[in-house]
Design a protein around this nucleic acid. Sequence first.
RNA 1: GGAGGGGUGGCCGAGUGGUUGAAGGCGACGGUCUUGAAAACCGUUGAAUGAAAGUUCCGCAGGUUCGAAUCCUGUCCCCUCCGCCA
Length: 422
Amino acid sequence: MLDLKLFRKEREKVIKALARRHVDVDFNTLFALEERLRAELSELEKMRREMNGASAEIGRLVREKKDASYAKVAMKQLSTNIDVVEASVKDFKARFSEAALVIPNIPDESVPDGESEADNKVVRTWGEPPVFDFEPKTHVELGETLGILDFKRAAKMSGARFVLYRGTGARLERSLISFMLNVHTAGGYEEVLPPFMVNRKSMTGTGQLPKFEEDLFKVEGGDYYLIPTAEVPITNIYADEIIDDVQKLPVRMCAYTPCFRREAGSYGKDTAGIIRQHQFNKVELVKLAKPEDSTAELESLTADAESILQKLDLPYRVVELCAGDLGFAAAKTYDIEVWIPSQKKYREISSCSSFTDFQARRAGIRFKRDKKAKPELVHTLNGSGLAIGRTVVAILENFQRADGSVSIPEPLRRYMNDREFL
RNA sequence: GGAGGGGUGGCCGAGUGGUUGAAGGCGACGGUCUUGAAAACCGUUGAAUGAAAGUUCCGCAGGUUCGAAUCCUGUCCCCUCCGCCA
């Protein structure tokens, strides 16, 4: 959620900043509701103050065993009036927060202008796309030929957009999870293994709800949602808490989780292979930082994600998203894109974002600089480190050989009984 | 799933309708004392909003009442016992 104080004081500036997103934001409703709410709230407080005074007076009379019946009758009227205003305030509050919760975060000033993906900026490129002296295969062909990816049977048991990993394929997936977690924990991230289902409040805290309900799987028979990313449970670890030791910041955590996405609205996109699935594995990095550190923390978080690709020797580039392509909660985002030979394109394998205080305000994540200090909102950040399935795609396609086998990146071999090829 | 108990400030823990945002203790912070420390003593010590006065918050949401941390209902969470189960 936006800082409503900032919103009130620097309305024009906020509107201008949000305009860079090229999305319609209904400010007028919000302004109108806010004005009414404040007026009624102030009225209500005045009435309550009066009532509190009268109530104390009745208390005194009762204690002194004097007659309070006259005062009580007067109070009854006041109390009835309060009920009316209270109900109205409650209604306005609900409508106001409904309007406020669907307003996206303000893009960071450093974020480039632009409307869509086409306007994103490449900030650096690492490694060289491989040159093949044979016709390279797609990961689907390779996976099926090697017997490690089984789409047909996955469709039989579950449906479209699922895959069954088998044998060394399953082992490769598991190895990548272990490898990535080992790298990140060695780099100072705490490993956590969270629930894969969370409640509505958590989803609202990180910004998936209320606006993006249609992207999520809701569990029948309970008020749970399957997580679309580990960002949700991990960021919410400190929800409604005040971190009272500033030394703990930045909090750095990493987690492996499966991710579940409806992929509604993505019909026809990436229908072949494991690029876009309803369920995929991911290792996620999450940081909670002091506001003044979040810019630098985003850089280092992105570098941490990149380090995985470097160790695996996979060619990639880093792209800075333009304002129009930013996610709802993000203030600034770097996408890391890995080279996919069959598509002759770089494809997203990680998305690293700073959410400034947007998620922290919704989720109630704060810290104190010292014992006496006022609590302040932390800045939250996260990024994939990395998406496992897409890493498998990149490995299969980039390290394939003329005979259809695939060379396993050196750092993974010890996770796979020193195997060198798939 | 059945039966019972419980959720109060950083922590422990009083509080069953009337100056209780909340006793007491612990912890923390500041001070006195001390060469320094400990002990002792004194003081301070939750959050939101507001310029302030003030208002709100005793898991959450409703209700009863002139008035609720205290009574009632629902709900969430925790604990104990039984059942079931990886």
